[in-house]
């Protein structure tokens, strides 16, 4: 497999795993705190914007990571060192790990959505399954 694809998959899995947990925790806390006094109409109305906010926040953080990687670490970089250890001899020195970031970028929204669904599914016996069922 092409090393770029390998790294992209690593980025995807990492971002997905982190964001699924982040979204699950966030949505669960939100439902426990705010939605205990609200019906599913409220959850349905607010859930999309909440997930979108989560995705945007993650992308923003990712963007900061890219910038940090680009301007501080990519030359003799910390991130590159880590990647090289993981996948042996991928990439050229001084090159930004673009496949990693692209994989992470794809993994972020999918992880957020999956985390949201997971959180709602954990409230299966209460009001929160209905937004998807309509």
């Amino acid at each position: 497999m092409d090393k770029s694809v390998e790294v992209a998959i690593i980025g995807f899995i990492g971002a997905f795993a982190i964001n699924i947990l982040l979204a699950w925790f966030n949505v669960t806390s939100w439902i426990q705190a705010d939605c205990a006094e609200e019906g599913p109409d409220y959850i349905k109305a607010k859930l999309k914007s909440r997930l979108a906010f989560l995705i945007l926040l993650s992308v923003a953080i990712l963007f900061v990571f890219i910038l940090v990687d680009l301007f501080f670490f990519s030359g003799n970089g910390m991130l590159r060192q880590a990647i090289n250890k993981a996948v042996s001899d991928w990439g050229d020195e001084g090159q930004v790990a673009w496949p990693l970031w692209i994989g992470a970028l794809i993994g972020l929204p999918l992880g957020s959505i999956a985390g949201g669904i997971w959180a709602l599914a954990s409230f299966r016996k209460s009001k929160c399954t209905i937004p998807f069922l309509g």
């Binding site: 019906g39 599913p40 109409d41 009001k127 209905i130 937004p131 069922l133 309509g134």
Partner: peptide, 15 residues
Amino acid sequence: YAKTASLTGWDPRIH
């Protein structure tokens, strides 16, 4: 609530 809620969260057969 029953008059105004489009989703209720109740048992689907009740809803």
